[in-house]
């Protein structure tokens, strides 16, 4: 399997052409609203809107599917945890005296015996999953649509120190390389007779731990090589460097940012004033 390119989507769209600062504003506003809203229905709509935006700007289904596959175990864990254990907080949110059980674990089961999975807890779990998905989808939406060089320039214009801005863009470049290395090392493990799918969790963890040795060594080696290359290209981290690209807020940026600010203000007002977006069990 080839790993999805995590770094960039190249389709030219209204959103991808926006300045990185406008995208950062989008990231911040949507994240805040997603964090505030506990209503699973609204959270779901917001998540779907961001998913639609991702597809619209050209984030590949392969990447989205990959992300969803990776996150699925965590989401199931979230759902179960909230369904089983999030009782006090959900009771406070709903104002009910009792939660509605949808499944009761037989009393004979160790540890969990007698506990119920509640409908309200599950709904809250769904809401948390939607929040998480929204955050996760904002990353490809805002970052992958930005040329790393524009990203650096945008961050520098926001007075982020150049070295830090460069580290952010270099990290995006480094991730696929590390994933590629992990995949190659896992393949070589299989070729030495280690079938992870047939192993128990302890043995599997041992093999993963062993795998980390060549991955870490390779990552360190490549990081050192890249630093040598960068130094050879006169990189010193000096913030006074010049840029081929320039970062500028154009009319579409101002219009989009203004509209977004109004929507954000309305969301804040409606949440705090009339409870729009509160949890409904």
């Amino acid at each position: 399997m080839m790993l999805p390119e995590l770094q960039r989507v190249t389709r030219s769209t209204f959103f991808s052409r926006l300045d990185f600062r406008t995208k950062l504003m989008t990231f911040a506003y949507v994240s805040i609203v997603a964090a505030l809203w506990d209503n699973p229905l609204l959270g779901g709509v917001l998540m779907l809107a961001i998913l639609g935006a991702c597809l619209g700007v050209g984030v590949s289904l392969t990447y989205l599917g990959f992300m969803f596959r990776v996150m699925t175990p965590f989401f199931l864990l979230l759902l179960l945890t909230h369904g089983l254990f999030n009782v006090e907080y959900v009771l406070r949110l709903t104002g009910h005296a009792h939660l509605t059980p949808v499944l009761t674990i037989p009393a004979s089961w160790p540890l969990l015996g007698g506990r119920s999975v509640s409908r309200e807890g599950l709904l809250y779990g769904v809401n948390v999953i939607f929040k998480s998905m929204t955050f996760l989808l904002l990353i490809p939406l805002c970052v992958f649509t930005t040329d790393p060089n524009h990203l650096v320039v945008g961050l520098v214009r926001l007075r982020v120190p150049y070295k830090l801005a460069f580290v952010v863009s270099a990290t995006l470049r480094f991730f696929p390389m590390i994933f590629g290395e992990i995949q190659a090392v896992m393949e070589t493990q299989r070729l030495r007779g280690f079938a992870l799918e047939d192993m128990g969790p302890v043995q599997r963890v041992r093999v993963y731990a062993k795998t980390s040795v060549p991955v870490i060594l390779s990552a360190l080696f490549k990081a050192q090589q890249i630093e040598v290359v960068m130094r050879s290209k006169a990189f010193s981290g000096d913030p006074d460097r010049t840029y081929l690209e320039h970062s500028a807020m154009h009319a579409p940026d101002w219009i989009f940012a203004s509209a977004l600010t109004v929507a954000f203000g309305a969301a804040l007002w409606s949440y705090f004033a009339v409870g729009f977006g509160s949890f409904v069990g």
Binding site: Q7, R8, D147, P148, N149, A170, R173, K222, Q225, I226, V229, M230, K233, L244, E245
Partner: peptide, 10 residues
């Protein structure tokens, strides 16, 4: 490892 940026010109 000697390619740093995301386009040929940059």
């Amino acid at each position: 490892t000697q390619i740093i940026t995301a386009s040929v010109e940059t």
